[in-house]
Amino acid sequence: MDHFPTNWGRPRNDAFDAYGTHPIHQRPYNGPKDAFADGVQHTQQPIVTGTSVLAIKYKDGIMMAADNLASYGSLARFKDVQRLCPVGQYTVIGAGGDMSDFQYIQHIMEELTIDENSAQDGHELGPVEIHEYMSQVMYARRSKMDPLWNSLIIGGFKDGKRFLSYVDLLGTTYSASTLATGYGSYIAQPLLRKAVEGYEDILTEEDARKVLENSMRVLFYRDARSLNKYQIATITSAGVNISDSLHLETSWSFAEGIRGYGAQTQ
């Protein structure tokens, strides 16, 4: 028995009245409902995204690079975004993926550093601790089926030791002497490995900078979600240094000589 008189004499379901000849806007719904359906919103997909982050070990420490673009799908939406962020005195986090989730991560890191600093217990957070903390956060969020949609590279230098490690939205972690996220893992990683593996203690700052600049240029040529404006971070015994935005020199004249992709008379 339907106890709501407004329903009487009306189709029970939209399916019986596909063209909406009965006014249905105010009619109460008495069917089964899922009270939690709209209650919790989880990140199901990234919205405003950053692309690759690159990082390598070199003689004096760690060098990282990321461009300044945050894309909205294929739209180059924000072109002055910093994706390399210092945490404490010894660490830099570089982020690809959802930029709002990254801002939240920066917020967590700020709270953490304030808490640790307030303790004044003579301990300081190094890259090892920050990476462990972030990997636990990322793994906990994936386990709640509510991931922070990022790939993070965490690089640092403390007590004479270099540290370079990765963590992503699944909580997967690993470290190596060269790391790259996103498209960079396909395009830049082979270039980085060739230049760095086995030369970690030989590569000078100048060499390292050249390797990263060249990889960023190749990425700009091939990754449609990248920008020719980027920053480089170094983490050495001297501390953290994140550069101002740099501009990539590119040359497109070779395009003239390409034959075979499109309509050409000759």
Binding site: D14, G31, K33, D34, T43, Q44, M145, L170, T172
Partner: peptide
Amino acid sequence: MPDMAALAHPQQRQFNPYSENG
């Protein structure tokens, strides 16, 4: 009125919490 079809078939979340690392 909630979409009857959606209630009958709960929406599939597309986030996959697993991976295979060889």
